[in-house]
Nucleic acid binder design. Structure first.
Lengths: 213, 213
DNA sequence: GTATGTTTGAAACAGACGTTTGATTTAAGT
DNA sequence: ACTTAAATCAAACGTCTGTTTCAAACATAC
């Protein structure tokens, strides 16, 4: 079927180019050129550039969110009434991300970049899209974190969750650049898994810190 | 003097518009319209849009960096040989930021956004500009953090510093949006100082976390 | 095989962008 | 007052953007 082939090629190219350059900096012409499809194909299949961005996002996020749901369901069935720690929750999320972005590492970067961008654009269509489409799973993760940190006031937990989100989004979306700097500074390689392994205790200790109020 | 007036108005407008919308999304036409100066003035006084962005950055960062230097000098003179904790170092930095962005809160947001962007753009002129111009002060702060965390391996400290940077950059550059979400969720106001007060123990606990390797 | 609906293709569209030009005004120096 | 340099202005430049158009190619069903 010619249709889905073109659609897939566009999504693939858009994904990698968005990850490299960002969204505003990536033109439809560069996407269609790399995908070797006609320029008009984007507007034909997706309607607009905005919708293409959302489609790129959805293609990653939908299976990711289903995987988080499924693994949480499975765990709750096996160990009901068990309260997870923050690190364990993060590990559920991180494992689902790894599985969904299998092979292609850049999918993680583009996902995080989208997440950061969703907050960055003032009247952004992305955050609303995200909020409407995926309220369920994010709400569930929030509840788990709340149960993991009963000592925190709701207000302070709100901010700490966003501190975590910020550290993760910044690190993962700039992973390539940061690893390049690291390699330059230390003359050593450093895998993405290493970085994630270092990130998790940082975040865990952060949310468990003594209150700052 | 007509010159510096035009230059200042351009910088002011650019600063506020960059903070609101980002860089690629802000046109020179919107800047000059808000500044009520001629479109050509930007290229006349700054040369290019890139240089304007760097000028906006420098106007904030230069006094900030001098203030950090000065307050660190003063402290070291009064209490030589005293090893600062991470929170104390962060407080030095944060106080300098507050003093430099006196009155206008948006200057902080734009500064952090620039910092985040410096890492985001692949071949970015901003990171190199930053690295070349302000190597001294950032190196000094790095050394202080190193002394504050002697138990960390250099490699892991590198990453934790960037985790901190990410959490701070994300939170502060999206402060307005996040506060709006917060207000919507909790029906309560929340000052920027409150957020910074909550951020610092989060970062401090994060860098002091047990190693993840 | 003809008709129907879907997908591609090359080309053009209108608009926005950063930048440049050259004339005109403003300010400073002598 | 005259000269010279600096600053402003309106207008245009060429280029790139997302999007639209409409004919050609394709597949599908009868």
């Amino acid at each position: 079927m010619a249709h889905s082939d073109t659609v897939t090629r566009i999504l693939d190219s858009a994904e990698s180019l968005f990850a490299e350059r960002g969204f505003a900096e990536t033109s439809l012409r560069s996407i269609t050129a790399q995908a070797e499809v006609n320029l008009a194909a984007v507007n034909y299949h997706f309607g607009s550039k905005k919708s293409l961005i959302q489609a790129v996002f959805a293609r990653f996020f939908t299976p990711f969110y289903q995987m988080v749901e499924a693994s949480l369901d499975m765990h709750e069935k096996r160990h009901p009434e068990v309260i997870l720690t923050v690190e364990e929750i993060l590990r559920f999320v991180s494992r689902s991300i790894s599985k969904v972005s299998e092979g292609d590492r850049r999918r993680l970067a583009i996902f995080m970049r989208l997440l950061g961008l969703a907050y960055n654009q003032g009247q952004g269509h992305l955050r609303k899209f995200l909020q409407n489409e995926y309220r369920a799973v994010s709400g569930r993760v929030m509840d788990l974190i709340a149960k993991a940190t009963p000592e925190l006031k709701d207000e302070e937990r709100f901010w700490r969750i966003h501190f975590m989100l910020g550290a993760a989004a910044f690190t993962l979306s700039n992973m390539e650049h940061l690893r390049a700097i690291f390699e330059h500074d230390f003359d050593t390689q450093c895998t993405e898994e290493d970085v994630v392994a270092m990130l998790m205790p940082f975040l865990g200790a952060g949310v468990r810190a003594q209150s700052g109020l």
